[in-house]
Simulated assay, not measured.
Amino acid sequence: MTFSLIICTYMRPKALLTLLKSVNKQTLYPNEILIVDGSNNEETKEIILHNNFENLSYYKVDEKNRGLTKQRNFGISRVSEDIEIVCFLDDDTVLEPNYFKQVIHTFNENNNIIGVGGVAINENRWEPKNVDKKYNSNSYYELDGYVYPEGLRNRFRNYLGLTSQLASNCMPEFSHGRTSGYPLTGKCYEVDLLIGMSMSFRKTLFKHLCFSTYFEGYGLYEDADFSIRALDYGKNVIDTKVQLSHYHDAAGRPNMYKYGKMVLRNGWYVWRVKYPHPSIKAKFKWHAVHGVLLFIRLLNVITTNERKSALTDAVGRIVGWWSLIFNKPKIMHNV
C-alpha cells in the first residue's frame, strides 16, 4: 500500500530533525513526506535545506493556514492521487524502525479498519502482573496479564466512583475515559479515540471528513474530534506493535491559561460530538470529574515547584468552565 506522512510543525526545528532521522531508518519508507510548517521564522526551513530526506516536500504556510487543524487540512489537500494511507505524527516523536511496516500490515489485515494509532513506549507504565501480589483496584488497573499504577487523579476518581468501566481511549457517556493506554501485548485494541502524536487513516476517509477548524491554534482534542467522526466509516484501533517515543517538546505550546481554558471548552465540544444529548447523570459526572481535576491543579500550587504554571492552568479551567454557562461552543457538523 502506498502511504504519505504528514508532519505539521511549529517552532520545533531540532525535534523535527530528530524525527526525520528516525524516519530515514524505517524498514518501510513513506512514498511521500509532507512537512507543513507554521513557524514564524526560517529555522525549520534551514534545517530541511541542509539535510537530504528522500520524497520530502516542504511547505511554509501563511497566517491564514497556520494552526494544527488548518495545517493538517493543507497537507491532505496536497497528498498525491495514488496514495492509499495518510499517516500523521507529532513533530516531537521518534519512531521505532518497524513503525510504518506495522501500520501498513494492520490496514492490510482488516478492511474494516479506518484508523490506526500507535503506542508511546517511553511513556508506557504497564507492568507484568505479579501473581503472588494482591493489587488494590483503586490503585491499579488490570488488563491482559498486566497492571497499570493509577495516578493521583485516577485514584481520586476511583474512590469517588467517577471512573469509566470502558477500556482506555473509549469514551463513556460522561466523556472522561481511561488514559492508561495499552500494555505492549502485541495485540490490536478497538477504540474510539486515536492520539494525534501517532495516527493513520485510509485516504478514502478524507473524501468525507476534514479536520475541524473549530480547534484553532494548538488545537487541543482535535484528534479526538476527528477520530470520533471517523467511526462512521470504520473501526479505529491502537496497535501495540506500532511503537514510537513521544518527548513533549515545550516549544510551540500555548501558555497554561489558554491550555486550561481549552481543557474545558474543547473537552465539552468533543463530548457533545460523541454524545449530543447525554443523560442528567452523565452531565453530573462530566462536571464532577472536572471539579476533581480543578481541585488537583489548585493543590499543585502548593505541592509542586511549578506553582505559577499550576495556578494559571487552574484559572484557565475556571474561566472555561464558567464560559460554558453563557457561551457554549457551537458544534460544526459539516466538516
Rank of each mutant, 00 (worst) to 15 (best):
Y140A: 01
L95K: 07
I195K: 03
G320Y: 03
G67W: 02
G316P: 10
L193C: 13
H333F: 09
T44S: 00
R157H: 02
F326M: 14
I48P: 11
F156D: 00
Y159E: 10
K129Y: 06
V116Y: 07
S4Y: 01
E46I: 03
L299R: 14
I228Q: 09
E127T: 15
G161N: 13
M1C: 07
G316L: 04
K328N: 10
N41F: 02
G151E: 12
V103H: 01
N111A: 12
H50F: 13
E42S: 13
K14M: 09
I83R: 05
T303R: 12
E43V: 03
I302P: 09
I318K: 01
K274P: 13
F215R: 08
A251C: 15
A282N: 06
V36E: 03
K235C: 06
F226L: 15
D313P: 00
L143M: 13
N138D: 13
T44F: 01
V79D: 01
K281S: 13
V270P: 09
F100N: 02
L5Y: 00
K45P: 04
P149W: 01
K101M: 01
V191F: 07
F201R: 00
M262T: 01
H333S: 14
A120I: 08
R125V: 02
N111C: 11
L324M: 07
P172S: 09
E84G: 12
V301K: 11
N110Q: 10
G234T: 10
E32D: 02
I121W: 05
D144L: 14
I325H: 13
K45L: 12
G291N: 08
F284S: 07
G316K: 06
D239Q: 07
C188A: 14
M1T: 06
V335Y: 12
L194V: 06
S139E: 14
V94N: 09
V237Y: 06
E222L: 07
L244E: 03
S39H: 12
K60V: 08
L17M: 11
G252T: 02
L68N: 07
I228D: 06
I33Y: 04
P13F: 02
I6N: 03
A250K: 11
N136D: 15
I280V: 12
T185L: 01
N266V: 11
S137L: 11
S39K: 06
F88Q: 04
R272I: 05
K283I: 14
K258P: 08
Y140K: 00
I296D: 06
N31A: 15
A120P: 10
L16R: 05
Y99K: 08
N73E: 07
N65E: 14
L293K: 04
D192L: 08
R72W: 01
R178Y: 11
F100S: 05
